[in-house]
């Protein structure tokens, strides 16, 4: 699959992984997107997006130790890779570039 520009959900997932740090897995990524972006995303969409970003090399993943509260099942934890950070930056730059010097009442305050 060619890397290409980031899709909308891919950008949100990368940002959620970045926010969660060492605790980024499907459940927390989905919670983060729902809580911060206010967008309801299906579980299936989160899994395939995380996996696609890992295939593109933007994320790396490893399995945690088995966890008793999860029936002894491990978590698949994700981490943002430098290429993912670059892709995210380029994606954000696109939006910033489009909004710069635009005479509009749209709010845009990355700070």
């Amino acid at each position: 699959m060619g890397s290409g520009p980031l899709g909308d959900l891919e950008r949100l997932v990368l940002l959620a992984v970045l926010r969660r740090g060492d605790d980024a897995y499907a459940v927390t990524v989905r919670d983060e997107i729902e809580r911060r972006a206010g967008r309801a995303v299906t579980r299936g969409a989160i899994y395939v997006t995380l996996d696609r970003l890992a295939r593109k090399g933007y994320l790396s993943s490893h399995m945690s130790e088995p966890i008793q509260e999860r029936g002894g099942k491990a978590r698949r934890l994700f981490r943002l890779e430098p290429s993912g950070r670059t892709a995210l930056q380029e994606s954000l730059d696109e939006i910033t570039g489009m909004l710069r010097e635009l005479d509009t009442d749209l709010r845009w305050d990355p700070a």
Partner: peptide
């Protein structure tokens, strides 16, 4: 029907927060 690398995590995630 789910990729093998995700199966254990999906099972656990559903138990944890499904």
């Amino acid at each position: 029907l789910i990729p093998e690398r995700d199966r254990e995590a999906v099972e656990g995630d559903l138990l944890e927060a499904g």
